[in-house]
Computed example of a mutant assay.
Amino acid sequence: MYRSDRGRFLWWWCLCLATLTGLLCMIAKWGPAGAFVCVLLAALSAVVVASAVWSGNDSRQGVKGIGRAMLASMVLGPAAIGLIGAFGFGGVLIVLTLTVTAPALVELVRARWFTAKDPAPQDLPEVGFLSDEELCLAWRRSFLLLEAARSAQARLTVVEERQRYLDELYRRSPDGVAAWLAAGALASGNPLPYVGDDDDRHTD
């Protein structure tokens, strides 16, 4: 997503300026009648495309989607044509720049990018073979992995991993885990001082 409202505001300001410029260029180049015909064609095209896209949705949602697409196309489509007609390649660059920097598109690309960047689940060692120190260290490291996870699937994988660590800690030292929790255990905390000193825990 955009890192600040300032960036989003700047994009909308540029879009409004480019749209107004494009519409004025269209009227100046083809006259009011030509601009009207272009707006009408853009609206009809938007209705056809939007009807196909929202045909399977709820009727009220579909009508709203078609209406938004029609209004946007009636303004943005002719404005883009006016910019390209008036400035040629420069107009193409303006239209492409505003398109690829649109907040919705940027958010979508970033979401997909971070999902792809999530590390694939790795084969984990059997927790029963870890020492107390190794198990507690794995618990603390898993918190950092959870913080770094970008997708729901990656977070779920780490949560399941942390549950395995916690279950093993409880199996070894139920009293120690209970004392740790009673002391206000943090998700990133170290349970070793509580479970490592439990002489009554069961180990393999």
Rank of each mutant, 00 (worst) to 15 (best):
Y2G: 07
R3D: 15
R6M: 11
G7Y: 12
G7P: 00
F9Y: 12
W11R: 08
C16T: 01
C16V: 10
L17E: 08
L20D: 08
T21P: 04
G22R: 05
G22L: 06
G22P: 05
L23S: 01
L24D: 00
C25A: 15
A33R: 11
F36P: 00
F36I: 13
V39E: 14
L40K: 03
L41Q: 03
L41I: 14
A43G: 15
S45Q: 12
V47C: 09
V49G: 00
V53E: 02
W54T: 14
N57F: 06
N57Y: 03
R60T: 10
K64Y: 06
G65N: 08
I66Y: 04
G67T: 02
G67Y: 01
R68A: 09
M70V: 12
M74R: 03
V75G: 00
P78D: 02
A79H: 06
A79K: 03
I81T: 11
I81N: 01
F87D: 00
L96I: 08
V100M: 14
T101F: 07
T101K: 01
P103R: 04
V109S: 00
R112S: 11
W113H: 13
D118S: 08
D118Q: 10
P119T: 14
A120Q: 13
A120V: 09
A120N: 02
A120F: 04
P121H: 09
Q122G: 10
E126K: 07
G128Q: 08
G128Y: 06
F129G: 11
F129N: 10
D132A: 08
E134T: 05
L135N: 07
C136L: 04
L137P: 01
R140N: 05
S142D: 13
F143M: 10
L145Y: 10
L146E: 12
E147R: 14
E147F: 07
E147A: 10
A148N: 09
A148Y: 06
A149T: 08
S151W: 07
S151N: 02
A152C: 06
A154C: 02
R155G: 14
L156I: 04
T157I: 07
V158M: 01
R162C: 08
R162F: 08
Y170S: 05
Y170A: 11
R171V: 05
A179P: 03
S188W: 14
G189H: 07
G189I: 05
N190C: 04
P193I: 05
Y194Q: 03
G196F: 00
D198M: 00
D199K: 10
R201H: 03
H202P: 02
